[in-house]
Simulated scan of single mutants.
Amino acid sequence: MVRGMDSGGRVLQLIKALEDEQFADPSDDQSELPPRTATSTISAAVAVAAETKDVIQVLVDEALTNGATWGEIAAALGLANPSSAHYHYGPKAGRNSPEDREAKLAAQRERIAAYRKTTQPKLELPGLSALEAGRRLGVDRRTVKQLALRGEIETVTVTSASGKESMRYLLPEQQPSASE
């Protein structure tokens, strides 16, 4: 009998039955099972707990599919709040296969690309960004901005469809000549 527990408890009976299936009596030399030890009941209890957690996970997933909220699930699990239930039984990165995650990412990329095609036409912008101009001149983008402030590089302000203004830099080879 386990101290502090009623030996007739259903969970303890289940653990003892599992222990009988997984471990042999120490006097049985013919069994292929490992011999029962002082800790074999603990091993059986851990196996029951792991199996129970898996069953609870399936039941939580089923409840969510059928419209249950995390608050209702937390109450059913005896947890303090919905976030505790979500932490223990919510979607986890490790629960999806790599193929599932890759398929979700691919679908997300397609949605983003489709959105960009319909909402943001590609504009041909005049000049270069500060970074691009700096690369061509072999200087830092901050130097390009300083050259523009001193008037050594011509600039153009471009407004996007969303209303955002950005500065573009016209290098000498991009500037319209006086004869044009």
Results as ranks from 00 to 15, higher is better:
15 I>F: 03
41 T>H: 11
50 A>N: 15
15 I>S: 01
180 E>K: 10
161 A>L: 11
161 A>G: 09
90 G>K: 00
86 H>Q: 04
9 G>A: 10
160 S>F: 05
179 S>N: 10
73 I>R: 00
149 L>S: 12
87 Y>T: 07
128 L>Q: 07
83 S>L: 03
18 L>D: 05
126 P>S: 06
11 V>H: 04
166 S>L: 13
38 A>S: 11
153 I>V: 12
66 N>A: 14
61 D>Q: 14
158 V>I: 06
119 T>D: 09
42 I>Y: 14
40 S>E: 06
35 P>Y: 02
80 A>R: 11
151 G>M: 08
136 R>K: 09
49 A>D: 11
118 T>L: 14
25 D>E: 11
122 K>H: 13
158 V>G: 00
177 S>G: 14
37 T>Q: 09
97 S>R: 13
141 R>F: 01
68 A>F: 06
52 T>F: 12
86 H>L: 05
102 E>Y: 11
75 A>D: 05
94 G>L: 14
35 P>R: 12
34 P>Q: 14
111 R>G: 13
154 E>I: 07
162 S>E: 09
114 A>F: 08
164 K>H: 09
156 V>W: 05
38 A>V: 06
37 T>I: 04
63 A>E: 04
135 R>W: 00
146 Q>C: 07
129 S>W: 00
78 G>E: 05
21 E>G: 08
43 S>V: 13
49 A>Q: 13
108 Q>R: 15
68 A>M: 08
53 K>R: 15
162 S>Y: 10
2 V>S: 09
91 P>D: 11
155 T>W: 00
124 E>H: 13
164 K>T: 05
172 P>D: 04
27 S>T: 15
114 A>Y: 09
98 P>H: 10
126 P>Y: 02
147 L>D: 03
72 E>T: 04
20 D>R: 07
36 R>P: 01
59 L>G: 09
73 I>C: 01
44 A>G: 06
146 Q>F: 08
5 M>F: 11
155 T>E: 01
157 T>K: 14
18 L>M: 06
34 P>C: 10
128 L>N: 02
167 M>I: 10
25 D>S: 08
177 S>W: 07
107 A>F: 08
